[in-house]
Structures are given as structure tokens and as C-alpha cells.
């Protein structure tokens, strides 16, 4: 992925925005079943874990020295990512949300997310690499309110009915995980 986003058309940028804003509204309105309709059945839904790494002396003076990538234990690593999920996992999460005995969601959380910095980074046939950032406010009775902040690295599949999420990697910004769960739909 080059460092510059693609010089896309206003129409295409608008289409991406429409998709992400719609998705955000579904998630905040707890319409997860409709959200699942936006997801490819082949999806990889990933969340690397983030560690405090040792400074590499040889990299001093270079941007590499403090790159975000060095902090991630992702799917390729021999560490342990926080989430490596498939459509089945997401289905379980969605089904669970509508059961009366889902105790950690009862009463359900109130969330509000702002999605922005939508950048189309690459295109290969019908598949688009898109970055976006989010801030998500989360409040639940009996818990302290928290803010989740992160970046999403998506592969969107452009199909006749619209976009489908083919891959999503969520890079969370935390030093300590002081949140009730990282198991939300981001």
C-alpha cells in the first residue's frame, strides 16, 4: 500500500462515506442482523494485540523505530492476536445479542461512534482497500463509561448490491485494556 490515498472521484468517495455512515448507524441502533448483511461470508475479522516493544537500536533516527506495525502481534505473527474471527464468530455474537440471557448485554450498552478519515488506499478489480478511524463512546449500567479509539483496515468488495466487508483488521489504541470487552462490533 502506498502512503498516499488514491485520487478517487467525489462520487466514489461519497459512496464509501454513505456505506460507512450507514454501517455506523446500524451498529449504534443495535440492528446487528442488518449489519451482518453487509459482511461477506468469507470475512476475516481481526484484531491484533498491541505490545510495548523494545526499541531497536539499529533503527534509531528512522521512522521505523517507532512504527505502529512493530507494536502489533497480528495474524502472521507467532504471538496471539486478540481476535481472529470468521463469519461464524460474528454470527454467534449477533445471535447472542437478541437472547434474553446474554447477561453482559443486559441491559445493552449505549454506543455512539464517529467514523472518519475514510481513505481509499488501493484498488484491485472489485476489491478496495480502505482505511477509516473511529471513536466510540460506550456506556453501560454498572460500568464506567469508556471511549474506544481505533483504526479499521478494510477490504471492501464492490458488488452489485453495494459494498461487502471482505476483511477487517481493527487496530485499537490502548496502552492498558481498561475496557469491559474488546468483543464489540467495531
Amino acid at each position: 500500500m502506498s502512503n498516499q490515498s488514491l485520487a478517487t472521484s467525489p462520487e466514489e468517495q461519497r459512496a464509501l462515506e454513505r456505506f460507512y455512515f450507514h454501517e455506523a448507524r446500524l451498529l449504534d441502533n443495535r440492528q446487528y442482523q442488518q449489519w451482518l448483511g453487509l459482511v461477506s461470508e468469507q470475512i476475516s475479522y481481526l484484531m491484533p494485540s498491541r505490545v510495548n516493544v523494545q526499541v531497536d537500536n539499529r533503527a534509531r533516527g528512522n521512522e521505523d523505530m517507532i512504527s505502529v506495525e512493530r507494536e502489533l502481534e497480528d495474524q502472521e505473527s507467532m504471538g496471539c492476536p486478540i481476535r481472529e474471527e470468521t463469519y461464524i464468530h460474528l454470527m454467534v455474537r449477533v445471535e447472542r445479542a437478541y437472547k434474553i440471557n446474554s447477561w453482559s448485554e443486559n441491559p445493552p450498552a449505549r454506543t455512539r461512534r464517529i467514523v472518519g478519515n475514510i481513505e481509499l488506499m488501493a484498488r484491485e478489480d472489485d476489491s478496495l482497500s480502505v482505511l477509516s478511524n473511529f471513536h466510540l463512546y460506550y456506556a453501560r449500567p454498572g460500568n464506567e463509561d469508556v471511549i474506544y479509539s481505533g483504526q479499521r483496515r478494510d477490504t471492501l468488495l464492490s458488488q452489485e448490491e453495494g459494498f461487502h466487508i471482505g476483511r477487517r483488521e481493527v487496530v485499537m489504541d490502548y496502552a492498558n485494556i481498561a475496557m469491559p470487552t474488546l468483543g464489540l462490533l467495531f
Binding site: 496471539c80 464468530h89 453482559s104
Partner: peptide, 16 residues
């Protein structure tokens, strides 16, 4: 990691 850890589907109920 599917069921336990900070995003685990079961462990989110335990930690609650």
C-alpha cells in the same frame, strides 16, 4: 481467543 481473553465471547460474561 474465540471464547476467552479480553474479547472472548464467554469471558465477557465472566468479567461482567
Amino acid at each position: 481467543s474465540s471464547f476467552f481473553g479480553p474479547a472472548g465471547i464467554l469471558e465477557q460474561e465472566d468479567s461482567e
